[in-house]
Amino acid sequence: MNLSTPVAVQSREVNYAPRVFDLSETPLRELNQALHNVGEAGDEPAWEVLNPKGSHAVAVGVDKAVAVNVRGSVGYYCAGMNDGATITVHGSAGPGVAENMMSGTVVVKGNASQYAGATGRGGLLVIEGDASSRCGISMKGIDIVVRGNVGHMSAFMGQSGSLVVLGDAGDALGDSLYEAKLYVRGSVKSLGADCIKKKMHPKHIERLRRLLERAGITDVKPEEFTRYGSARTLYNFNIDNADAY
């Protein structure tokens, strides 16, 4: 989805020919500008980003269906606002990876720091290691699959989308949850306010099966997961809950 009206981009002294960006030689802005200048995604080969060394905001705001491979670990907000690209981090990601993703796929081969996938509206985020606290906070339609564990307050105020955790979840999972769907295969340290265990119906198993397939996970079965969701008691103010405020 591109909401902006196309405008003529002034020509810049940027060499667009090579699709390998070595961040030890090329400024990050040049990489991001080149990614934003992609015309038709079909014309573009895979992009390689070398030596990220913890840089912030690598490949943010990409809105074409390009494939970007980042070879190393990144800092804050990698792949933020992604809209259609497939971005793979061959390392670990700092806070806010794929924050506010609209569509596309982001894969983190290592671990992800706090608030991975926060506020995401669509697309798929796969974290092959662990995600720390607040994974999927305020998620609004994104699907997140974490092969390892997630930290405390994950899916806090999650509105829609799915969070799938193959490992364990930390404290206060799904606190103040709206309609995001949570599936955890391991243990849950504690559930947050208004988050409850729910029954897995065939439609949930089917939905989860498709999601695991999209995430390329073939070694676990959807039946091994427990579903959690909102008890919907906090949606509207209830005088009986006044003491809780």
Binding site: K53, G54, S73, G75, G110, S113, Q114
Partner: peptide
């Protein structure tokens, strides 16, 4: 505080990198 501080340490490519638990 950030990975960038560790990025140039010797052998970092093969180090165990993790976030300390709260």
């Amino acid at each position: 505080s950030e990975y960038s501080a560790l990025a140039n340490l010797p052998g970092i490519e093969n180090a165990k990198v993790w976030e300390p638990e709260p």
